[in-house]
């Protein structure tokens, strides 16, 4: 079966972001970028399913500026067969992402779409569930295990109290949680091979999707800072501070 995975280019999760002084957003110039970690898990899952003989073709999709081609090349170095970039210059909010992914799904007809549960930049946690809604497909959000059995899949989802088991009909949308797998490192030979894989660039208009943001960002600010703390010498001093100063125990 064919699988479609989505990958987003984001600020590297280990970089401390800085809010722009004019309050319009965060600084992205000269900042290290990377594939969103949950998207890496999505690609890894598709590649493992291909290695297991369940999946025949993996199509990686990204939405963003032309630089997102790098992210698609990384997905292809991990094992995706080809890439599709929907080139958009500005902000694309989750509803528009879902509409674009749906449009590509309509063309590509995959049996499974695997997406990251959340992008670590806008922290929305929406696009996968929205894509499932627009397609009228079942969804398995926050998945930590998946087994495909013909026309259904057994999935385990991470929920607040533990784990939940579902059987979903295929085609379906799955979003990845951290425990689904540990993504591989890309190797140099695979990076070289990925450069030769096909990469198509589309515009949203070609897919008939309006990507104008629905939410208007009024301002972006630094969060409230915590006041500086103190170092204590030993457990005795710590207990004294908690009892007499903080009064929390």
């Amino acid at each position: 079966m064919k699988v479609l995975v989505t990958v987003k280019r984001v600020i590297d999760p280990y970089v401390k972001v800085r809010v722009k002084s004019d309050g319009t957003g965060v600084e992205t110039a000269n900042v290290k970028m990377a594939m969103n970690p949950f998207c890496e898990i999505a690609v890894e899952q598709a590649v493992r399913m291909k290695e297991a003989g369940i999946v025949s073709e993996i199509v990686a999709v990204s939405i963003g500026t032309l630089q997102s081609q790098e992210t698609l090349r990384t997905a292809m170095a991990m094992g995706a067969d080809r890439g599709i970039l929907v080139e958009v210059a500005g902000e694309v909010q989750p509803l528009a992402v879902a509409k674009l992914v749906k449009a590509i799904v309509d063309k590509e007809q995959p049996k499974l779409v695997i997406m990251g549960k959340q992008a670590i930049d806008d922290d929305s946690n929406q696009a996968g569930q929205m894509t499932a809604a627009l397609l009228g497909w079942p969804q398995a959000a926050f998945t930590s295990a998946i087994t495909v059995n013909g026309d259904t899949a057994d999935v385990t989802r991470e929920i607040d109290g533990g784990l939940e088991k579902l059987t979903i009909k295929l085609p379906a949308v799955v979003t990845t949680d951290l425990r689904l797998n540990e993504p591989r490192y890309v190797t140099l030979p695979n990076i070289m091979k990925a450069k030769k894989k096909p990469l198509e660039v589309l515009k949203p208009e070609a897919l008939g999707v309006d990507v104008v943001p629905r939410l208007k960002t009024i301002k972006v600010e630094e969060p409230a800072k915590r006041s500086a703390g103190v170092k204590v010498a030993d457990v005795q001093e710590l207990v004294a501070k908690l009892k007499n100063e903080a009064r929390v125990i």
Binding site: I11, K16, V17, V19, V26, I120, D121, D122, D123, R214, L215, K216, T217, I218, K219, V220, E221, E222, P223
Partner: peptide, 12 residues
């Protein structure tokens, strides 16, 4: 947004 390192005010 960004793991709470920025706070966005948004209008719908």
């Amino acid at each position: 947004i960004y793991a709470g390192n920025a706070m966005a005010t948004v209008q719908s």
